[in-house]
Amino acid sequence: MLVRSALTLLSVLAITGAAQAQDVAAGEKSFNKCRACHQVGETARNGVGPVLNGLFGRKAGTIEGFTYTDANKNSGITWDEATFADYIKDPRSKIPGTKMVFAGIKNEQEIKDLTAFLKQFKADGKK
């Protein structure tokens, strides 16, 4: 009985932890901070910043039709969750010389949520 209770508790904690790990809806709300410069989805276009479709696994500075700084193109970064989390906290610290002017997102949970939202979009903008 004690073992079963412990396993049930661990299952509940694991599910709760997973729910807290990523919240796509919260990430979409957080993306409102990015919308002034970036777009996602099937109709996304480059604006002040590049399209963010298919961001994860992509080399920095490679979206066709967007004019990147040399700092961004030559950063050697391939976007993954850890690199994005580090970058979004302070873009100019991660890539000195980038033209991205953004105060950053410092809250770890908000970064995870934003990551979950962005990861939905494949390179073609489809979810």
Rank of each mutant, 00 (worst) to 15 (best):
L2M: 08
V3C: 01
R4N: 02
R4E: 03
L7A: 13
T8K: 10
T8S: 08
L9Y: 09
L9E: 10
S11E: 03
V12Q: 06
I15Y: 06
T16G: 12
A18H: 08
Q20P: 00
A21T: 06
Q22M: 01
Q22R: 09
V24N: 04
A26T: 08
G27C: 11
K29E: 11
F31H: 04
F31Q: 05
N32G: 14
K33H: 05
R35K: 11
C37V: 13
H38W: 04
H38Q: 11
Q39G: 00
N46Q: 05
P50R: 08
N53H: 01
G54A: 05
F56S: 06
K59P: 02
A60W: 06
G61Y: 02
I63C: 07
F66T: 10
F66W: 11
T69C: 12
D70M: 10
A71M: 12
K73F: 00
N74Q: 14
S75L: 08
G76Y: 11
I77M: 04
W79K: 05
W79T: 01
A82Y: 01
T83F: 02
F84E: 08
A85D: 10
A85L: 11
D86M: 14
D90W: 05
R92Q: 15
R92V: 07
S93H: 11
I95N: 07
G104R: 14
G104K: 14
I105C: 09
K106Q: 15
Q109P: 01
Q109G: 07
Q109N: 10
E110S: 13
I111M: 10
K112V: 00
K112N: 12
D113C: 07
L114W: 05
T115E: 07
L118A: 08
L118I: 07
K119R: 12
K119A: 12
F121G: 02
F121S: 03
K122F: 01
K122H: 10
G125H: 00
K127G: 04
